[in-house]
Every structure is written in structure tokens, then in C-alpha cells.
Write a protein that binds this DNA or RNA. Structure first.
Length: 401
DNA sequence: TCTGGGGTCCTAGGACCC
DNA sequence: TCTGGGGTCCTAGGACCC
């Protein structure tokens, strides 16, 4: 989708149409997550602080995002995709891959399907998208980025090498700033040059990634489209929060750790996972210095207070050098189970209490019921996030071990 | 009033076991 | 007395994506 969050907001509120708008988060130190094309024309970019966006575009309209709108719209759009092939993989909330190899006989050509999809999305939701048609996922993604907004780009099999010849390497999904710099220093600037580079030269510098890089330069990608329900199981569940102001009071830090632990715990329980590695992340007030520490326990846990205790045990080993800007807690080394583990005695009672809490919070919003010590933060607590693991069908598949 | 939040994958070094 | 090689698990950190 093009400028997805901003487009959805402009549809929801006609007064925003045709105007420069920026969608932001709810907290004080938020950044711009998406801006409309009208705003982009003035230089507004994703990741900018709000004041920065206003500086380059004084008439910028700030809209606080509503993730439920976006997840709902995304689900409906993916339903449209599945009218054309069951092989649909959601890459993020606003991007999907469709393998239409086996649909061509029914609908005619790839181009026909693309036009049908574009028309239906425009008709149903009033938003535009850019579609890329190509022999594989790497090239389809590249093609979809070549014309925005409202694009349709086809890279035919016998056209691949011609398109790649002068294409800058950083246009490929997977080559970021650092990799671009490394390759540039090796005098590799275009995909054509990357594809022709001797493999040994790349592998000696990048290891197995080097072989993959050469293939990318040649437009080779053997990865398959992974349908809903077939995705790899989640590997970690985490939350982090930039605090409204920098803090150094240990009691306040513990307070936020409990809040994060509850957010992580409730989501882990919703996914039916527990984990035995807890990772704590701290960013200091100067923004640049930060550290992460992890600890691995003997047992798998997903109760909020267990996660909280583990994160305390980590932070207690550290002497904080500065006030804290951001705190993060994440749970990994996960085990997926079909249902809660059987427990006895106090643990069993605690489980029932937790399940009751989770049920209430599911219905009335996260943190409708929470730990007493978190009450002052009730309002700002669990904001609705869209993790990358978010899928139109709900959560990712579960591996039952 | 500087600069969010959710992930995955890869590498490197150390501990430990056989 | 001094020594090899395979493997797993753990921690820390970086690059990349949206």
C-alpha cells in the first residue's frame, strides 16, 4: 500500500484528503511513522521527530495513529488477495507476496490480476498500492518499489539482467546502509557489478552472506511464498518504551520494568508460548549509549511476575551510568505449547488469576485489570502495537512441542 | 522538546561435554 | 606430560526489515 497509515486516515476523515498529514504515536517523544504524499513532497520523512516535520512543512497536520484501523484494513485487503491465490504471504502490515503461478490459467495474465486487485482495493478502501510482477520475491519487491504511488511494474524473466545492470545495490531488500558502504568500497555500486563479482571475493569478506549477495545481484531468489498458518513460529516476544522523561530513580525504573514485564507476559500467554531467556535493554539519556544483557533460566516462564523478577535480577547487577531514556524487556528461547502447563497449589491459583486477568484485558483493553503498583500508569500503559509477527489471521503458527 | 517500537538473522568467543 | 576435534548452549553485538 502507498503511505498506508496516512491513506487510511485520509479516507476516514475527508478533511485530511489532499493535505500534508503525518501519522504519529501517542506518547510525547513520538516520531512520524508515515506521512501522506503531500507531506513527503515538502520533505517530511518517516522517523522524523514531530517538530522536525513541522519545521520542513509548517502546515503539516499531525494525526495520532489508530492501529485497529490499520490491522482491520490490512486483513480485508489480504482477503482480496486470497480471491486470486491461496499462496499469500504477508511481509508486513501493508505488503504481501502473492504466488500466482497456478492462477494464470483462471484469470489470464499476471497483469490482469494486478489490475483487478488495484481496482478492488481502490473501490473498497479508497487507497492506492504499487504492485510488482516478477519471477521471484526479491525481484517482485524491487519492481513494486520502482513506481510509487499507484504503480504497476513488470520485470519479465528475459528482462531481469537488463533491469539489474544499472540498479543501485541498495534498492535490493536486504542491502542496507552498512552493506552498501562495504560494497561501494569494493567498487560495487550496481546490481550488475554485484552479480558479476567473483564469489570468492564476496565470501572472503562476508562469509556465507557473500554467496547470497552474488545471487541477489543476479536476481536469483529461490525463497517461496509462505501461506498463512505455515510461517515459522515466533522466536521472541518483547516490548520497549521510551519514557516520557529520563529517569534515574530505582523505584521508578522498577515500576516501568513491571509494566513491560506484564506487557510481554500477557502477549506470551496469548501466543501460548513460554521462554527461558530474558533480555533487558537500556538506552541512556544521551541516546547513543546503551546496553543489553540477557539471562537464561532453568525453567520456561510466561507469568508477568516471573519475567519481572528475572529482569530485576539483571538490572541489579548493573550500576547505571546515566538517567535512563528507554527500557526494554523481551522473552526468547521460546517453547510453544497447545495450552498452559499443568500446575499445582499456589501456582495453580495464580494461573487462574492470570487467565481471568488476561480475559478481562482482552475484552476491555490491555491493562483494564493490572497490578496495583501499575495503577498510576493505567492510561499510558499497553498501547496497541503492531508487531511484525502480526498476521491478518491473528498470530503466527504455533509449533506444539 | 532531538531522534519509536516490533522483530529476524548472523557472527564471534567462551564454557562445557564427550 | 601434553595433547585433538566435534558438538551444543550461552552471551553480546551488529545489520537489516517494516
Amino acid at each position: 500500500m502507498n503511505a498506508f497509515f496516512a491513506s487510511v486516515e485520509q479516507q476516514a476523515n475527508p478533511e485530511l484528503r489532499g493535505k500534508p498529514i503525518a501519522v504519529v504515536g501517542g506518547s510525547e517523544r513520538t516520531v512520524i511513522t508515515t506521512s501522506s504524499y503531500e507531506a513527503r513532497a515538502k520533505g517530511v520523512k518517516t522517523g522524523m521527530a514531530v517538530w522536525e516535520g513541522k519545521r520542513v512543512c509548517p502546515e503539516l497536520i499531525i494525526v495520532v495513529g489508530d492501529n485497529r484501523k490499520y490491522t482491520y484494513t490490512s486483513s480485508k485487503i489480504n482477503e482480496i488477495f486470497r480471491d486470486y491465490t491461496p499462496e499469500v504471504e504477508a511481509f508486513s502490515i501493508d505488503e504481501s507476496w502473492l504466488d500466482i503461478t497456478h492462477s494464470l490459467g483462471i484469470f489470464g495474465s499476471a497483469e490482469t490480476i494486478a489490475y483487478l486487485i488495484k481496482a478492488r482495493i481502490r473501490h473498497s478502501f479508497g487507497i492506492t498500492c504499487s504492485i510488482g510482477i516478477a519471477p521471484n520475491k526479491l525481484l517482485a519487491k524491487l519492481a513494486s518499489d520502482m513506481k510509487k504511488p499507484d504503480g504497476l511494474t513488470i520485470i519479465a524473466p528475459d528482462d531481469v539482467l537488463r533491469v539489474l545492470e544499472r540498479m543501485p545495490i541498495n534498492e535490493l531488500c536486504g542491502i542496507g546502509k552498512k552493506m552498501q558502504r562495504h560494497l561501494n568500497m569494493m567498487s560495487i555500486h550496481t546490481c550488475g557489478e554485484l552479480g558479476r563479482c567473483e564469489e570468492a571475493r564476496l565470501t572472503s569478506k562476508f562469509g556465507i552472506t557473500g554467496s547470497r549477495l552474488k545471487q541477489m545481484g543476479q536476481g536469483i531468489d529461490h525463497s517461496t511464498v509462505i501461506q498463512f498458518g505455515e510461517e515459522a513460529a515466533v522466536k521472541s516476544v518483547g516490548h520497549s518504551r521510551t519514557l516520557e522523561r529520563d529517569i534515574d530513580d530505582p523505584a521508578e525504573i522498577r515500576h516501568f520494568l513491571l509494566q513491560l514485564s506484564e506487557m510481554v507476559g500477557s502477549r506470551a500467554r496469548k501466543y501460548n508460548v513460554s521462554g527461558k531467556t530474558i533480555h533487558l535493554y537500556v538506552r541512556y539519556a544521551d541516546f547513543f549509549s546503551s546496553w543489553g544483557k540477557q539471562t537464561t533460566l532453568k525453567n520456561y516462564i510466561n507469568q508477568s511476575d516471573d519475567i519481572y523478577r528475572a529482569s530485576l535480577s539483571i538490572i541489579d547487577t548493573v550500576k547505571l551510568e546515566q538517567p535512563v531514556r528507554l527500557l526494554g524487556v523481551s522473552l526468547s528461547n521460546l517453547k510453544h505449547h497447545a495450552e498452559q502447563l499443568p500446575l499445582f497449589g499456589v501456582e495453580r491459583k495464580k494461573l487462574f488469576a492470570t487467565q481471568a486477568m488476561d480475559k478481562i484485558n482482552d475484552r476491555f483493553g490491555s491493562m483494564a485489570v493490572t497490578y496495583g503498583s501499575l495503577l498510576p500508569e493505567k492510561e499510558s500503559a499497553g498501547s496497541h502495537v503492531i508487531p511484525p509477527s502480526w498476521r491478518p489471521d491473528g498470530i503466527r503458527s504455533v509449533d506444539v512441542k
